[in-house]
Simulated assay, not measured.
Amino acid sequence: MTSSDPIENLAALIRCASVTPQDDGALSCLQAMLEPLGFSSDRRVFEDTDTPAIDNLYARLGDSGPHLMFAGHTDVVPPGNEAAWTHPPFDAAIADGRIYGRGAVDMKGGIACFVAAVARFVEAHGQPEGSISLLITGDEEGPAVNGTVKLLEWAAGKGERWDGCIVGEPTNPESLGDMIKIGRRGSLSGRITVNGVQGHVAYPHLADNPLRALTPMLDALMNPQLDAGTDAFPPTNLEVTTVDVGNPALNVIPASARASFNIRFNDTWSGETLRAEIKNRLEKAARDDGLRPGRGPADYALEWVDRVSPVFLTRDEALIGAMRDAVKTVTDREPALSTTGGTSDARFIKDYCPVLEFGLVGDTMHMIDENAGLDDLEGLTQIYLAFLERWFSKTPR
């Protein structure tokens, strides 16, 4: 197999059924592509309480600066109902100009193209005047505990330093060249539990319905809007995702009610200031007796769920400019610089170096019949190659 062919690279990776947390040979397959190009490889297994052990790969070509990192993951989500696939999800079947398989776009395709681009770069120019590393985890689609975070800490601990990073997640909504992601909104999740007094619905004066308190509290979370957005980000958005009382009886006032919410926030906020705002809104709403006349403040508890994913915005013009120029050269499109979408491992990398995301069209990721266009795979490889040529020629040594 020649690692300069992104389609062959991707087919080999798809055939590894690396559903989180299983590796199924995916990292060894990637190693076999990289080591003939001169990369040295480190495999690191990390584990933690109540989470599966995860195999990770760090590979580096060169020993000087500037140092470019490519980050990504070989783990994939489950295929779902395999009988519903037009082609088996781990066969890497090619039909009608497309390659089918779980992970084709999210994100084995991005890895396959970057490896092909590096192979072409080395063939055309020799080893770069600097270094290229790949930081690849098997835990992005899972808890994200034993993957990128720990691999970054390990690499930095042994002296690795980076000048820029590309994350190869699928970023384009419709066509290759549509969008470069230069930041991500933060994410904060919480759960509210309101305690009431259970009773018969015919005797409400003997009970205290927690839903009468929870209703104005949820309204206070969503109104007024948290902000109007910034130059780089859309308005902060809070969504209530569950409301539950666990009550199967129609004639019983429940004893408690719970609601969960998630906030995707822009750079108006930090995790700390947003938590303070939510607490203030809930405290005020807990004293609202509009639905509970004559009663005191609601008895409630607020629990923060999981860690905060911080908001970030990359402003490194050398990194952004090189990718923007590469995209325009190959596709003749002017890519939008976007901060839309969910979180990614870029939220961890931004603490170590400037980072942007650019990859394939993502319209089939996580779906039945996930697939990537063969032309897009070649196009992305050319974009990555053009980026490498620009970035290494312009980044100070």
Rank of each mutant, 00 (worst) to 15 (best):
S18W: 01
I111Q: 08
S4N: 11
D42I: 07
K158A: 03
S187T: 14
N209R: 05
Q31A: 02
R390F: 03
I253M: 08
F265R: 09
A59C: 08
R275L: 10
A84R: 14
V305M: 13
L61T: 09
N209V: 14
A116V: 02
A336L: 11
K150R: 10
K350R: 15
L211S: 12
A156V: 09
F348M: 14
G157A: 09
V118E: 06
C16Q: 02
A95D: 15
A17T: 00
R275E: 15
G296F: 02
L34F: 06
L68G: 02
G196T: 06
R258E: 15
H366T: 09
G168C: 15
M1Y: 11
S175Y: 09
P335Q: 08
D139F: 05
L221W: 01
E140W: 06
T148V: 05
M217Y: 07
L30D: 00
D369M: 05
A53Y: 02
A301F: 08
V149M: 07
A119M: 12
G190C: 08
F348D: 12
S309N: 13
V122P: 04
G177T: 03
L302P: 05
V45F: 11
P143Q: 10
N251G: 12
K328I: 00
S41L: 10
G379M: 02
A202D: 15
G183W: 10
S270D: 09
F265L: 07
R44H: 12
S133V: 02
A259P: 12
H366N: 10
V167H: 01
A276M: 13
H125W: 12
R258P: 03
G138V: 03
V311T: 10
S260V: 10
R333I: 12
L34K: 02
D244T: 07
D332V: 04
P396E: 15
L30T: 02
M323A: 14
S270M: 06
E153K: 13
K394D: 14
D91A: 15
V145A: 06
D50V: 00
Y352Q: 13
G341M: 01
T331C: 04
P79I: 00
P235I: 03
A257W: 02
M365Q: 09
R275T: 13
G321M: 12
L37W: 07
L27S: 03
H200Y: 14
E8G: 11
D24T: 01
A232N: 15
L319N: 06
D227Y: 07
E82G: 08
R275S: 13
T364F: 06
D42C: 08
G126C: 04
G294F: 00
L188P: 01
G271S: 08
R397G: 11
E277W: 11
V240L: 10
L10Y: 04
V19R: 01
L211Y: 11
D5C: 07
G183N: 12
S187G: 14
H73W: 05
G168H: 11
P297Y: 13
D24E: 15
A336S: 11
G199I: 14
D208E: 12
E129Y: 01
T241P: 13
D267R: 02
A322Q: 06
A318C: 09
D351K: 14
D24K: 06
D288G: 06
Y384W: 03
V122F: 09
L152K: 03
V77Q: 03
P173C: 06
L218V: 08
